[in-house]
Design a protein around this nucleic acid. Structure first.
Lengths: 187, 187
DNA sequence: AGCTTTTAGCTAACAGAGTTAGCCAGACAA
DNA sequence: TTGTCTGGCTAACTCTGTTAGCTAAAAGCT
């Protein structure tokens, strides 16, 4: 038996990539094993099982999303920052629908769970956007939730093909950014 | 063998109720069969299988959501209508998380698919809200998608326990309604 | 009522996915 | 070289979805 030299990170990365390709619902342990060149039970030497795999993929996805959004915002403020963050977030979800889907419904076990840390980093990136607007301290949490709901809702509806009729989706997203910008500036 | 007198509608209704109780991911054919007092294979006399069951639950959910939102809007206009629609939608998702989850990712097979009809009815209910604002014809689609993204995003994040820290969630939702109202009135 | 047809329930059986147990050889350290 | 650790393997089990084929209850017809 030639050793493949796997480790948990490699398994999780392959799982995330596979989830993006075939959809999270079709990510099976057998398929993942085949992809990394190993028999199914061998995966259990690296991850605890399907639920653990899902959590790790989710943590990876949130971390990558935080990097993408955080990086996109660098050097911008106000409307430019908002647009950059929103576009980066949506692009990430569209490019990595499987791994992003893994983030839905998972709950961190504690404050030092990598999942919680990655999620917080993503929130921080959006928080940085809000700093470019004069939103009262008491409204920051609400505004953050609004931004998150908007971006998450739009992106997930789009990947699920939830927008049926013909109007251009990119145009709608730009419209939505402008809408949020006007609202935030008017505070 | 005493006949139970099932029919597709009863199976779907029971499935939707069970999904709300145990979560869509834990809705199993065996569990549903037990719930309706029948052996598992007997379910296949009424629904085509798990995928078909999921589609039917989704159609039921969208239809009920359309009724809830449409009913709530009756007699209101402008901000009152927006608030009524948004609250009714979120309340529905919070009360019926399982059946609403079934709507995510399903695609209608054609224009006369009950799924498409129910989805259109829900959209129409939100469209009625927009009629109370002076939004230009060219922006209606974008505004509708914005409302949908907001409501869908907020509700799904909340049922997934996606809002971590302490600020009051109901308060955030009311803030969000006010935010959308200001933005729509300013067009 | 009696006969036929339909059909909703059943048991049996199978396929596929997740998981565990236990073995064995490759890699590394002394 | 030898011993330990560990990442791979096969075998086996459970649980879920599904199909096939049977039987009796209901429904319809004369």
């Amino acid at each position: 038996m030639p050793r493949v030299g796997l480790d948990p990170a490699a398994v999780v990365a392959a799982g995330a990539a596979l989830a993006d390709e075939v959809g999270l619902a079709n990510l099976t342990m057998g398929l993942l094993a085949e992809r990394v060149g190993v028999r199914t039970p061998s995966l259990y030497k690296h991850v605890g099982g399907q639920e653990d795999l899902n959590r790790r993929i989710a943590a990876l996805a949130l971390s990558e999303a935080a990097d993408a959004v955080g990086g996109a915002v660098q050097g911008y403020a106000g409307r430019d920052a908002l647009a950059a963050a929103a576009r980066a977030f949506r692009a990430f979800v569209l490019e990595h629908p499987g791994r992003y889907a893994a983030t839905i419904g998972v709950e961190p076990s504690g404050p030092d769970d990598p999942l919680a840390i990655a999620g917080q980093r993503l929130l921080d990136a959006f928080m940085a956007v809000l700093r470019g607007y004069e939103v009262p301290e008491s409204d920051v949490d609400h505004a953050l939730r609004m931004l998150r709901s908007l971006c998450h809702g739009f992106a997930t509806l789009q990947v699920a093909n939830g927008f049926q009729w013909s109007a251009d989706i990119d145009e709608s997203f730009e419209w939505l950014i402008a809408f949020a910008d006007r609202g935030l500036r008017a505070m």
